[in-house]
Design a protein around this nucleic acid. Structure first.
Lengths: 126, 126
DNA sequence: ATAAAGGCTGGAGTATACTCCAGAGTCAAG
DNA sequence: CTTGACTCTGGAGTATACTCCAGCCTTTAT
């Protein structure tokens, strides 16, 4: 059950990242994850880095980015932080502003929910 | 072109809210918007309140809530702030925590993007 | 009365992001 | 060498949230 310590199969990084095997393969197809090397028999083999990348994707997605946007953002890391093109600069700038707005909105919404919730607790049920 | 001042047709609230007519009708089908009254001929007629509701939906959605969740949250407003059921209390509590986490993540992500971006600006292109 | 702008319904189609599956091959242990 | 856990591919299917359309009706200005 224990192959080489440092060579991770897809099932392993699936468990570590919390993403399904199918999802990982889907991300690869979509170009979000660089194509992994393969074992002689054809199994995908990953380094630990892949786990971090998957977690990053999940987080970014949770923050409202599409896979396309995430792909763009991630590919900048690959190329030593060179902007791939002006559009990427624009994307980054836009996203930063968007995030700022979202933070404001989340704080507002949180307050709203809290107010409603505390009203319930005050009344108590049944 | 100007009917009664206070009776709004779907096209009007569409423009004001920034959502398409189709989307508004879709929300109605999904039960997010209370069924509007109709003109004699069958046109939907709204009050200005509907615009606010649409804007709320759009914001909540932007923050990562599904239409189902938004529906639940909105229906609480209708019922004088009574929790519709325990599940709603749970939903609210969970969402408040989720929002807190997201705020943290957004701030982290914003910082990351900013760092990358400032690297580009420093180097300047071409 | 009529024409242009706007609205109606039901249903089909689209985009995104998965999720599931069959049939077959791989790998490590015993 | 067999077994059982794991992985492979390609393609079909699902959920969510729209988006578009045909064919027809309403409204209102002229």
């Amino acid at each position: 059950m224990k192959t080489n310590e440092s060579i991770l199969q897809i099932g392993h990084i699936s468990k570590k990242s919390g993403l399904s095997i199918d999802t990982i393969r889907y991300y690869e197809k979509q170009g979000l994850l660089k194509v992994p090397s393969r074992s002689v028999g054809g199994f995908r083999t990953y380094s630990a880095e892949a786990i971090d990348q998957l977690i990053f994707i999940r987080k970014a997605q949770d923050l409202g980015l599409t896979l396309k946007e995430i792909k763009k953002i991630m590919s900048c890391g690959d190329k030593g932080l060179e902007p791939c093109c002006d559009l990427t600069v624009d994307l980054f700038t836009a996203k930063i502003n968007e995030f700022e707005t979202k933070i404001q909105e989340l704080q507002g919404m949180k307050k709203k929910l809290k107010t409603v919730l505390s009203g319930w607790v005050g009344k108590k049920k049944k």
